[in-house]
Design a binder for these strands. Structure first.
Lengths: 139, 139
DNA sequence: TATTCCGGCGCAACTGAGTTGCAAAATATA
DNA sequence: TATATTTTGCAACTCAGTTGCGCCGGAATA
């Protein structure tokens, strides 16, 4: 039986290995973004730190996941939903960090707002991170 | 003669020391934000790494400077222009990173745009980082 | 100005994240 | 199955940032 995980890996011409399956599965089953630490904790009992680093890097390179900047200087990763492919990410959505539960979410439906820059400035990319209370925590 | 630097330090009830004067002066004379590395390079010949770290932390705590998140996971610091005081930063402007010269600027005149969140999400803080070509580099 | 006191500094040592080289193991290919 | 290629795990390393502590310099008082 070919699982969704196997399929994604094959489509990206990656060898199907235990660690890749495990880590990719984490992203498919979890809502929200994962920090490196989360992944290491959840998959790291079985795999080496280095393998986790390399696997994440591979996934980013292939456009399977994308990184999310955070104010506290920790990198988080989330699945790319749309048309990302090798070497090119096209994430035009904003990211939301819940200050209550700490989870990071891609708000796919909220596109990045237009920003009016001063004269002489040319914009090529805009990152928006909103902090607040998420839908699950608003009680 | 009481310099601007001395004045700022005194107003924040900080001892006026060589390292604080030197580092604060860097911020006052430079345009744009400084990464820790920049500061260490420019002031570090005279001062210990640890002193630079501690001085920056002190300035952030006092509301003299603020940190700027960057996508590449390096922290940058810039002077607080307006009503920041101990324990509370009120920076409502966006940040701009020039992909040509690498400098990071606070665009004080560009306020953070309103973002429409999905139902159930409450926003408390929004960070916007725009990448592109700055006024000096547009040639 | 001299003296005392306390905060700030430099040093050394440590922690933790992330990286690299290489041999062994797992996967793909024929 | 045999061979070639890719990936993994281990060990060792680098680099950013932190902590403890003794000493020095700035601030306060006389």
């Amino acid at each position: 039986m070919v699982t969704q995980v196997d399929d994604i890996l094959r489509r990206n011409s990656l060898s199907v290995t235990e660690s890749r399956k495990k880590i990719l599965n984490l992203f498919l089953t979890m809502h929200g973004a994962l920090a490196h630490g989360d992944i290491e904790r959840k998959a790291g009992e079985k795999f080496d730190r280095v393998t986790v680093y390399r696997t994440l890097q591979t996934f980013v390179d292939k456009g399977i996941i994308h990184t999310i900047p955070t104010t506290d200087n920790s990198v988080r990763y989330a699945l790319c939903k749309d048309n990302c492919r090798e070497g090119h990410h096209h994430d035009n959505h904003i990211h939301f960090i819940c200050i209550k539960c700490g989870s990071t979410l891609c708000l796919e439906d909220v596109s990045v707002p237009e920003v009016r820059l001063p004269k002489g400035f040319i914009s090529s990319e805009t990152e928006v991170v909103v902090k607040g209370i998420c839908n699950d925590c608003k009680q």
